[in-house]
Every structure is written in C-alpha cells, then in structure tokens.
C-alpha cells in the first residue's frame, strides 16, 4: 500500500485534533484559544471524511492539552479524536467527553435569563450527555441539543 499524501503537513511533536466537523473549526480554534497561541499551528478544513462527509483537522506543534482543557470542545466537536505526536509517531490517542461544568461556551435558550441580558459568563451543569441536556446555573432552565447555541 502506498502512503497517502497528507492534506496537512505532519508535525514532529504536538497534538493533532482530527474529525472536527468542518462547520465548527473556527469555534474549536476560539474555544481552545489557538487564535492567541504563539505555537506553530496548521489546519485544514472541508477535507473528505468517510465518517463525517467534511471534516477539519488542526495540528498544534509543541502543545499537549490537559483533559479538562480539551474537553471544552466536546460540545461543538463531540466526535473529535486526538493524536499525541512525539518524533512524528502517534504515542497516544484520546477522545473528548462533555465536562460536568460547562463555562462560557454555550448560550442559554431562555430569553428571560440574566445571562442573555447582562455581560457575563454562562455556566451550565451537564444533566444528560445523550441526548444532550444542559441546566443553566442561573435561570435553572434546561437547554437541549435542539436549542443549543455555541457562543
């Protein structure tokens, strides 16, 4: 078997975040603060994927995410897969899980909630991962998958 040409060049050391829905690439970049990072970052989007149709991929050199840091992207990219790269080799693989506390990522669907009327950070607790149900820690209303909006 011949080795396929990579759409996004390999990195020597760092993290590859694969299987991001193409529509959510820039949300993932923003949630992880990669737009402010000094690390070398390469990414590709609208790449063909057998599972997803169109996916995006991000490669961050010399960066290894803590679990609670990377889990923040689980709301927008639940199918994301992480490859940890050392010396061009995959040394570990990880998936993401939705954290118990979701801070500053989701928008409460209740228009009468204080979080939609005051400049402040939203906070939710996870009620159910599947189907997704988040409870706003302020107005105590449940936001589900259908009404979920990522900030």
């Amino acid at each position: 078997m011949t080795k396929k040409e990579l759409s996004v060049r390999a990195i020597k050391n760092g993290t590859v975040i694969d299987h991001i829905p193409a529509t959510h690439l820039f949300k993932v970049i923003s949630i992880l603060g990669l737009d402010k990072s000094k690390n070398q970052i390469t990414f590709g989007t609208n790449l063909k994927s057998k599972q997803q149709g169109h996916k995006a991929i991000i490669k961050v050199a010399k960066k290894f995410f803590a679990d609670d840091e990377i889990n923040k992207i689980a709301l927008v990219a639940p199918s994301a897969k992480l490859n940890i790269i050392e010396d061009y080799q995959v040394v570990d693989k990880k998936t993401v899980t939705i954290p118990e506390q979701i801070v500053g990522i989701a928008k409460c669907f209740n228009p009468k909630c204080i979080t939609n009327n005051e400049e402040m950070v939203t906070k939710f607790s996870l009620v159910e991962p599947e189907p997704l149900a988040l409870k706003c820690q302020y107005c105590e209303k449940i936001t589900n998958e259908e009404h979920l909006e990522v900030l």
Partner: peptide, 10 residues
C-alpha cells in the same frame, strides 16, 4: 426582586 430569571444567583 428582579424580572430576569437567574438574576438573584448572579
């Protein structure tokens, strides 16, 4: 007393 929900927690 406030008309917005969650205002007291905040």
């Amino acid at each position: 007393r406030h008309p917005l929900e969650g205002s007291a927690r905040y």
